[in-house]
């Protein structure tokens, strides 16, 4: 797969539509919200199924526990709001009421990462993957784009147990297609190559593909992996990439502390250690600005991925 030109689309729109379709197929699907239902597009689920959307106000801990109670009585409860509230503010409630109980609560959060934009650092959570992947029994999903977000909805509902899925406020490049197969726990190789591997999640998958195009111009064949499931990690695909390409760069719109880079480094170190590079937020808070400006300022660009790939290859003693 080469980079662009891609359609820019809203993950929230795909999320909202997928939820309604799921709701039509499965009467046990219910949704809880916390005064963000219009923004996160669950309000349309409420219009389609008025008695299955529960608006609980600015009270996210209560929202999560209510979802858990609904799930304990047999419902598949989707709790949806902004990531900073749905993961950070509710951490211990998720831990005790959702994960420890192993209930069918599916936490779908938009507004993850820097690209929340002008609202600034209070709303730009770059730590949610770290928080959620540390909790036993939690499945953590980071869809690359709109179509994959829709697939996450269906896959999350189909599996037993808790799920956390994070996506963006900003429109993102549609790099996958509705026809692509998708499974929780499987990383997808979206471009083949044998010189180095670029592993991205969320909107950084597109940037990995752009980086691969640039490397290709210099004769470097980069493999690109879309890591839409952070947990459980597809260790086999990552291990194969390490063995076959000898170097890995990770790219995430998230702090490099306990993000996908850390997860992959742990897996690689235990199996087949190779040089790695980590593109992500460098343990700092964000700030106000437009999404694209922030990605540039905080180093979440194709250029940085290219630089990291070259550095990895140099450390390994290869230039191509």
């Amino acid at each position: 797969m080469t980079s662009g030109p891609w359609k820019m689309e809203s993950q929230r729109t795909y999320f909202g539509k997928a939820l309604i379709e799921l709701g039509r197929r499965n009467p046990d699907v219910v949704v809880v919200g916390a005064d963000t239902t219009e923004s996160i597009k669950t309000i349309d689920f409420g219009k389609a199924f008025p008695d299955r959307l529960f608006q609980l106000g600015i009270a996210e801990p209560n929202m999560i526990s209510v979802a858990a109670g609904l799930a304990a009585a047999g419902k598949i409860a989707f709790a949806a709001t902004y990531s900073v509230f749905g993961s950070g503010h509710t951490y211990n409630v998720i831990r005790q009421n959702v994960a420890y109980t192993n209930l069918n609560v599916k936490i779908f959060c938009s507004h993850a990462g820097l690209t929340v934009g002008p609202d600034g650092a209070t709303h730009q959570i770059n730590e949610d993957i770290a928080l959620m992947r540390g909790i036993p029994r939690m499945t953590v999903l980071v869809p690359a784009d709109g179509p994959e977000t829709a697939k996450c909805v269906d896959a999350a509902a189909a599996m037993k147990g808790p799920v956390y899925c994070r996506f963006s406020r900003t429109n993102v490049p549609t790099v996958t297609s509705t026809e692509d197969d998708f499974a929780i726990g499987r990383a997808r190789v979206v471009r083949d190559g044998s010189d180095v591997t670029l592993i991205g999640c969320g909107l950084m998958v597109a940037r990995c593909l752009e980086a691969a195009d640039r490397l290709d111009r210099d004769g470097v064949e980069a493999r690109v992996i879309n890591l839409s499931t952070v947990k459980p990690l597809d260790v086999a695909t990552i291990d194969r990439a390490a063995r076959e390409t000898g170097g890995i760069v990770t790219a995430e719109e998230h702090t490099i502390v306990h993000g996908i880079g850390s997860a992959i480094a742990t897996a690689i170190a235990a199996n087949h250690p190779v040089p790695m590079g980590f593109v992500g937020v460098q343990d700092v808070f964000g700030e106000s600005g437009e999404a694209e400006e922030l990605l540039r300022k905080y180093g979440l660009t194709a250029e940085k991925i290219v630089d990291a790939a070259r550095d990895v290859m140099k450390r390994r003693g290869r230039t191509r």
């Binding site: 209510v66 109670g69 304990a72 211990n92 831990r95 005790q96 420890y100 109980t101 209930l103």
Partner: peptide, 29 residues
């Protein structure tokens, strides 16, 4: 712990979550 002890209906220990959980159960009923 939910799921381990026969008859236990919720996990609790961190305070203040049980009434919310009960609200979810009541809504489902």
């Amino acid at each position: 712990e939910l799921g381990t002890t026969p008859g236990v209906e919720n996990a609790a220990g961190a305070e203040g979550q049980g009434l919310s959980f009960s609200v979810g159960l009541s809504l489902a009923a």
